[in-house]
Design a protein around this nucleic acid. Sequence first.
DNA 1: CTGAGCACCTGAGGGC
DNA 2: TGCCCTCAGGTGCTCA
Length: 273
Amino acid sequence: MPELPEVENVKLSLQSQGLVGQRFQKIELLRKNLRTPLRAELTRKLPGQIVRDVSRRAKFLLFETESYVLLSHLGMTGSWRIVVGEVTALKHDHVIIHFESGLKFVYNDPRRFGVLELITKDQLLANRWLKNLGVEPLSDQFTEELLFLGTRKRKAPIKGFLMDQKNVVGVGNIYASEALFMARVAPTRPAGRLKKTEAEKLVACIREVLHAAIAAGGSTISDYKNSKGEAGSFQNRFSVYDRKAAPCVTCGEPIRARVIAGRNTFWCRKCQR
DNA sequence: CTGAGCACCTGAGGGC
DNA sequence: TGCCCTCAGGTGCTCA
């Protein structure tokens, strides 16, 4: 479900709904596992803690309290919703968090590829989910040098390089295709054959696509919603993603689709080289 | 080290 | 209507 723009919008909607400042009262675990075990320490350690900050690192949400950080990854189908008053349990609700204010915070995830883990603050850098993550694409650290030098001698397609979270984070299957289209680089191109000027262009296009998608509330293909239940609209502006055989928005050539780096990939063979 | 393929899981949609 | 197949926004593991 969610790439960087969607996770960023979940973060923003949670902030606007007043999650920061809420004090945990009770945590209900409705099952034992998501992708990893839901540890019972969640129910013991969080009560009494206050949410001090909600942030995002790569595709993870970080709920920070005085002593801990609650890490949440939405996998493909995870979602958080805030409920005022009684919770009507839905299918695939797995965790219900009660705050002292009466607000409820509910995690739903049909495929259960998500992750929810509590760590202490001093474990942040060493944490297994966070320690190997690459640079944030919207930060100053994501530069053309990094992309150019990082891709030298890489033979695999550039699209896979962009989706590998060890290199740059937050870019998934949708935005890799969209950014490559905007930069006019074919997703099949061996990463090491990227020219310097193209690396520069690609960095700018990744930023531009992600910013535009964030501003549009993310992309809702089937079920993505922010914590207020609002869908995104960037799917209406896809240039290539999920547009197999449809005319290229630039030249009219039918959009190609093929599995690259393990995922269905869309591009224009005329515009992208 | 790199890169490819598979695994995890449920549900939606298409073909028959 | 029902069955079977394929595919889906992610990512860690194993193997060559």
